[in-house]
Write a protein that binds this DNA or RNA. Structure first.
Length: 1028
RNA sequence: GCCGAAGUGGCGGAACUGGCAGACGCGCACGACUCAAAAUCGUGUUCCCUAAAGGAGUGUGGGUUCGAUUCCCACCUUCGGCACCA
């Protein structure tokens, strides 16, 4: 039980009003003077590292929306400190980047100065809210003592490659040794056999032998190594933001627009710096299993990485124009077309090929008579932006090249087309088109009259057939009915009503075909489509199982029915019958058919079987493809970390770590250049060195934020980015909190850097953030109505003039009230509008706390009955509730529980309990529970109660399970599922007693109406359910 | 189109593992105090019914169960993400 309390005695009167404007600055100054929240070095206590996404300090400062995560993490930090943990709760600034640079240009103020100004303002706002960061660990990524180490890590990556055999990063020197001793063959062979390592080396890198390696110049060797380095420079098509005049990474493009500027991005081919994140694709995907993150973020990262498994298949190019039956007449291995497919089981249905317009073989393949059209198409595709190419219209376009390839599994000649729905950046830039089982290919084939041959059975076994009026004799219908076949009649053409038949399963289809054959009238045919593809003519049944059959069937149908003669394929003809619409196409796995020796192979194993067979016959091999591309890191701007590289006659050369930091030079003008070069390029003193020309691009800020969480463990180290001891003690981050908008940007990049540093022996863990939580957004409180009359709330933004700042809220209601409302506003992850009535509500609660602690005898209410036992129970239940809810990130219910606790104290006061031992204990508990939420008020009340400074260094109260237990419980009595009465019984009452008591209640007797209970169910501690 | 999340009073929201729907707060109404107001204290506040009794009720429609906000099926709406990825 607690010690002596002197609060609530004569010394305090109503004159002592709660004035946060006085007590908050007072305690903030004291805490700062005492360095109360300074985190010491590693010690024997358990550690807890709680981290907010470090912010970009903008000139606008923070809004109440930004505080949505800072307050809860502060509550957690304070809670863990009181629980006896060694807590690391730091803050820093992601200070480099375009907004500050753009502001610098506009205001004509040096960005260094703006950075200091903006950061200082953020610190002021944080302190205003009473956040308990350890300010001695403040980081600013634009300071040279920080970016020096960003450069150092860049060099680590530049000097490394990914050795697929070790499955980790290794020194580039190891690769050089291997190349010089035995060449690259072993590496490429290994990658071929281990498909998940495709990202280790740049696409199209030639395999060199040791002899070839030695024959290269140093410059050529360096260029070759670039294909392996984890930080590398390469020419590629990149996203160019014409407004900010920089390239941006794939991850920074949303719907064809640049993430920050909102400009439509253009394609440009430029030499740029990248990190080889694709080498880590497999691990980045797999290790997601080990983190406690929101499912949504995990899914988004998996989608972004986009792993898909399948096969690579080589298609030989047919001799131009020559008819080939069954066998290939070309042996030139250079003119193979390699495709990637996730559905090797559909290979027999590949009736044409499509190359991306950018595919290198297009020029070579195109025949003279097709050249003009092909070139026009390629030019037009080039001119389109990604935006136009993907979203303008979904209508597919393409042209025939005049060339043919050989489908390796059946030797058939198939036409090669080019179309912009095939992307050069994914897979091999070429596909085999299986129109019967791929939606895009289906649409394309229908448009251009290419044959569509089904090769996978419908798993549901459904087939359809239309019987035209007059096409069968008069007995057909009766027999169909007798056979139990499902059909209905419908007006089909001018001749009257026909039958629409739906068949299920092979047996029924065979029976149906038999019926047709007996009753078919001359001059007609019938088809069965869907599960099977049969055409019943008067002299036999044809199956749509090949391109030849397609032509044959079409010719016969056209002969019988001239209306069919303008269709180019059987499938095109069938699409005209609306009844067939849903059975003509499917993309599911199912039994293979029309596939030579593989016909009849079950859908579960088809893919694996065909892949193995292809490998055996040297036609293809298993392959893994990732959607993710390498991470573009360089920016043509001033305000970023300089890239520590020199361009020498021998190629790119790294600075020595001892030459770091490579400082950003002072410049007069930050304006980006018209040529797309960084402003640094205009500073000869910076660019020109005796050894070579400096790289003038800077790193995107994603580099800075990819390791700052490590630096916090040892922020002032000038020998290394962090000490081994410190990083091993503090990391990984136990709880990381921020917005969901960084799902695939920062969070993916930081994970990659951690893995690289792990591989190189700098950190002992593979994932940086054990647990992650996303806060919801806070919207403006003003309700708006859109043009459709729907109500909505808009985001807070300076341009809309609807920003509410913590400054104004603190000035009016105090920091503690703001903190309480930030927690109370809603579920933590929910997006919610700010409510201007909310803060005064919380403030009212704080005042109730203030009064009940300091002056419980004033303003009493009506006398009530309430026992000290009940007060103890509530107090201890509230401790348990707080601890459970904080683990669940349920901050709103913590505040609700504290309010209930406060209400209980008022009741206890009215029952005359003030000053009793139970009362004093309850006040002690209340103040400690409030300390993380309203730290200033808790400290003030603690002091006024004569307790020793500081409440924030008190141990967290321990819940007494006994005290928290209920002795009596209310049992609900239900009759036929409806609530009819309640009874109060001792918590330990046995089942029979409770049941009998329930049956005796007025409510139960009344609604049972004299009937005997058929069943009585007792749920211990909850209810009795009577069934009559 | 695909993936994910969410639909509960006038409002923000709560509800353990299937067991009293609406905790807590806002707003509103009434009462006490006051010359009066504010503040404060108290009472009430899902809807229908004058009230009681009773009935309905957690996006819609079905299902499982003694019992469903919770589980299953289908659908609708909103928000977020991805989007020709072979």
């Amino acid at each position: 039980m607690s010690g002596l309390f002197h609060c609530g005695q004569e010394g305090n009167t109503m004159a002592d009003r709660y004035i946060p404007q006085e007590i908050e600055p007072k305690w903030q100054a004291r805490w700062e003077a005492d360095a109360l929240y300074k985190t010491g070095p590693a010690d024997s206590r358990p550690k807890y590292y709680i981290l907010d996404f470090y912010p970009y300090p903008s000139g606008e400062g923070m809004s109440v929306g930004h505080a949505r995560n800072y307050v809860p993490t502060d509550v957690i930090a304070r809670y863990y400190r009181m629980k006896g943990y060694n807590v690391l709760h730091p803050m820093g600034f992601d200070a480099f980047g375009l907004p500050t640079e753009n502001a610098a240009i506009k205001l004509k103020v040096n960005p260094h100065i703006l950075n200091e100004r903006y950061s200082a303002n953020y610190v002021r706002q944080y302190k205003l809210m009473g956040l308990s960061y350890d300010w001695s660990r403040l980081i600013n990524s634009a300071h040279a003592d920080y970016y020096r180490w960003t450069q150092w890590i860049f060099l680590q990556m530049f000097q490394s490659w990914y050795d697929p055999r070790l499955n980790r990063a290794a020194p580039i020197a190891d690769l050089e040794r291997e190349l010089s001793e035995q060449g690259a063959q072993a590496i490429f062979d290994y990658i071929d056999a281990h498909a998940e390592h495709v990202g280790v080396v740049a696409k199209g890198t030639p395999v060199v032998s040791a002899a070839q390696w030695h024959a290269m110049s140093r410059r050529e060797q360096n260029a070759y190594l670039m294909n392996f380095r984890l930080a590398f420079r390469a020419e590629s098509t990149v996203n160019w933001d014409p407004v900010d005049k920089v390239v941006v990474a794939d991850e920074e493009v949303e719907g064809g627009r640049a993430w920050r500027s909102g400009a439509l991005v253009e394609k440009k081919i430029i030499r740029q710096w990248f990190f080889r994140i694709t080498a880590y694709a497999e691990r980045l995907a797999n290790d997601l299993d080990t983190v406690d993150w929101p499912e949504k973020i995990v899914k988004m990262q998996r989608n972004w990485i986009g792993k898909s498994e399948g096969a690579e298949v080589d298609f030989e190019i047919s001799d131009f124009g020559l008819p080939i039956a069954g066998q290939s007449q070309i042996a030139n291995p250079k003119s193979k077309i390699r495709v990637f497919t996730t559905r090797p089981d559909t290979l027999w249905g590949a009736t044409f090929m499509v190359l991306s317009p950018e595919h290198p073989l297009v020029v070579e393949l195109t025949t003279d008579d097709r050249r003009a059209e092909v070139e026009a198409y390629v030019a037009q595709a080039r001119a389109k932006t990604d935006e136009e190419r993907t979203t303008a219209e979904k209508e597919k376009t393409g042209v025939f090249t005049g060339a043919y390839a050989i489908n390796p599994v059946n030797g058939r000649r198939i036409p090669i087309w080019i179309a912009d729905y095939v992307l050069m950046g994914y897979g091999t830039g070429a596909i085999m088109a299986v129109p019967a089982h791929d939606e895009r290919d289906f649409a394309f084939a229908l448009k251009y009259g290419l044959p569509i041959i089904p090769v996978i059975a419908r798993p549901d076994g459904v087939a359809k057939s239309v019987v035209l009026p007059g096409s069968v004799d008069e007995h057909f219908r009766a027999e169909l009915e007798q056979a139990g076949v499902e059909f209905y009649t419908a007006p089909l053409d001018e001749a009257g009503e026909g039958l629409c038949v739906t068949l299920r399963g092979d047996a029924q289809i065979d029976q149906y075909v038999e019926l047709l054959r007996r009753h078919l009238k001359p001059g007609y045919w019938h088809e069965v489509v869907g599960a099977r593809w049969l055409f019943v003519f008067d002299d036999g049944v044809e199956e749509l199982d090949s391109v030849e059959a397609d032509g044959r069937i079409l010719a016969r149908c056209a002969a019988l029915r001239p209306a069919a003669s303008n269709a180019r394929t059987v499938m095109e003809m069938l699409t005209r019958q609306p009844f067939y619409q849903d059975v003509l196409f499917h993309a599911e796995y199912g039994m293979m058919m029309h596939s030579g020796p593989f016909s009849g192979t079950s859908g579960d194993t088809a893919r694996q079987q065909v892949t193995a067979w292809l490998a055996q016959h040297g036609m293809g091999k298993r392959r893994v493809n990732y959607r993710i591309r390498d991470w573009l890191i360089s920016r043509q701007r001033y305000w970023g970390t300089p890239i520590p590289i020199l361009h020498t006659p021998d190629g790119e050369e790294a600075l020595d770590p001892s030459e770091l930091p490579l400082r950003l030079p002072e410049v007069e003008n930050y304006e980006p250049t018209a040529t797309g070069e960084s402003p640094l390029a205009n500073i000869p003193e910076f660019v020109n060195t005796p050894r070579g020309r400096r790289e003038t691009d800077t790193m995107a800020t994603w580099a800075c934020s990819s390791w700052y969480y490590l630096r916090f463990s040892d922020p002032h180290n000038d020998q290394a980015p962090f000490g081994q001891k410190e990083v091993s003690y503090w990391l990984p981050v136990d709880m990381y909190v921020g917005g969901a908008e960084h799902a695939v940007l920062h969070l993916l990049y930081a994970r990659m850097w951690t893995k690289v540093l792990y591989d190189l022996g700098h950190v002992p863990f593979i994932e940086p953030f054990k647990a992650l939580r996303n806060q919801g957004m806070i919207l403006s409180p003003q309700k708006k109505v859109d043009e459709k009359g729907r109500e909505y709330f808009e985001k807070m933004s300076k341009s809309k003039g609807n920003v509410i700042t913590p400054d104004e809220v603190v000035a009016e209601y105090g920091a503690d009230a703001l903190r309480g409302y930030e927690m109370f506003i809603s579920d933590f992850s929910q997006t919610v509008p700010w409510n201007t009535q909310g803060v005064p509500g919380v403030r009212r609660w704080l005042e109730r706390v203030w009064r009940i602690v300091l002056a419980p005898e004033e303003d009493k209410g009506m006398p009530v009955t309430y026992s000290g036992r009940e007060l103890r129970r509530v107090a201890h239940q509230t401790i348990l509730k707080f601890e459970k809810d904080i683990g669940d990130f349920s901050f709103n219910t913590i505040v609700a529980a504290l309010m209930e606790f406060t209400n209980a104290l008022y009741k206890a006061r009215d029952a005359g309990l003030a000053g009793s031992p139970e009362w004093n204990e309850a006040i002690d508990i209340l103040l400690k529970l409030i300390a993380p939420v309203a730290p200033h008020m808790a400290e003030e009340l603690w002091a006024r109660c004569g307790r020793p400074y500081s409440i924030h260094q008190q141990p967290w109260p321990v819940a007494d399970a006994q005290a928290a237990t209920e002795e009596e419980i209310t049992i609900v009595v239900q009759v036929n599922g409806k609530l009819r009465d309640r009874i109060t019984v001792p918590a330990n009452a046995d089942e029979e007693t409770v049941k009998q008591a329930a049956l005796q209640t007025n409510g139960a007797r009344k609604s049972m109406n004299g009937k005997q209970p058929r069943q009585v169910i007792y749920v211990p501690g909850r209810l009795v359910s009577i069934v009559v």
